[in-house]
């Protein structure tokens, strides 16, 4: 057999493996009872979707909340991470390695190492159980990605174009908007995509800092799965992956592959 045929075969296997775990979720979401050994549900029903999309299910509200938190975290991360990335990318200074380590730490430290201490800290600040608290907490695992992507972007940035703009009379804000931003935009979008996804899939951190009160989608999904409502869990799981897909498809054309190399989260 030709090498290309082998590669095709391997490719088909990979594609199957990537899609398979999502198939039972999709089937469950339309099932009214689906017991062993039936390959397909005894009866189809739209009730899981009806419940998931109704006010009562709390899913729509939770989707909005999860989106709000992820977008706010991403915006905050950009606000803080772009300047930090600029400092790390453009300048060499004493203690830079230490600062890099500190900013990288939350990405490498296993989640459980920070969650309990953060809970204690946020409790003392009165932030446990608040959406704002959850956003601030999400910044911890999110910022390393934004900072490092931006550091990589600024490492290849030529500051002379800013100087030229200034010399032609543009103010700092105008220089940033018209000269700097267009250059760093692809990298910024990559960083934002990762920031969004990291916040979007947080579980334990939200559970701890949200104190059970900030019910993001992963928590709602788990609570239905833990109660044995596989049908509703299936519907929520599909709803849960949609925004990520949409954002990826939307940004795919603008995100450079190089961004992936800078840093990533599992």
């Amino acid at each position: 057999m030709r090498a290309e045929t082998w590669r095709l075969l391997a490719g088909v296997l990979v594609a199957l493996a990537l899609v398979l775990p999502l198939v039972p979720l999709a089937i469950w979401s339309g099932a009214h009872g689906w017991r062993y050994p039936d390959l397909l549900p005894q009866q189809w029903s739209g009730k899981a979707w009806t419940l998931a999309l109704s006010d009562r299910g709390g899913v729509v509200e939770s989707l909005g909340l999860t989106l709000t938190i992820a977008i706010a975290t991403t915006a905050l991360a950009a606000l803080v991470g772009v300047p930090a990335g600029r400092a790390l990318g453009l300048y060499d200074f004493r203690g830079k390695r230490l600062i890099l380590l500190l900013l990288l730490a939350p990405a490498i430290l296993p989640g459980i190492a920070l969650v309990l201490g953060l809970h204690d800290l946020f409790l003392r600040l009165g932030l446990v159980g608040t959406t704002g608290g959850v956003i601030l907490a999400h910044l911890v695992p999110v910022l390393p990605y934004m900072t490092l992507v931006m550091a990589a972007v600024f490492a290849g940035f030529d500051t002379r174009i800013e100087a030229q703009a200034r010399s032609l009379g543009a103010g700092p804000l105008r220089t940033f908007a018209t000269v700097t931003l267009p250059v760093i935009l692809p990298g910024l979008l990559t960083g934002a995509l990762f920031a969004f996804l990291v916040s979007w899939s947080q579980y334990l951190l939200t559970l701890a800092i949200g104190g059970g009160r900030v019910q993001t989608l992963p928590l709602v999904l788990y609570s239905y799965a833990a109660a044995g409502r596989n049908d509703v869990a299936g519907a929520i799981a599909l709803i849960y992956i949609l925004p990520g897909l949409a954002i990826l498809l939307f940004t795919a054309s603008r995100v450079t592959g190089r961004g992936f190399g800078a840093v990533l989260r599992p």
Binding site: P21, L22, L25, Y203, P218, L221, A233, A237, Y240, G244
Partner: peptide, 11 residues
């Protein structure tokens, strides 16, 4: 990459 871990685990 965009699919949350919890979805993968339940799936």
């Amino acid at each position: 990459l965009t699919v949350p871990h919890v979805v993968g685990a339940i799936g």
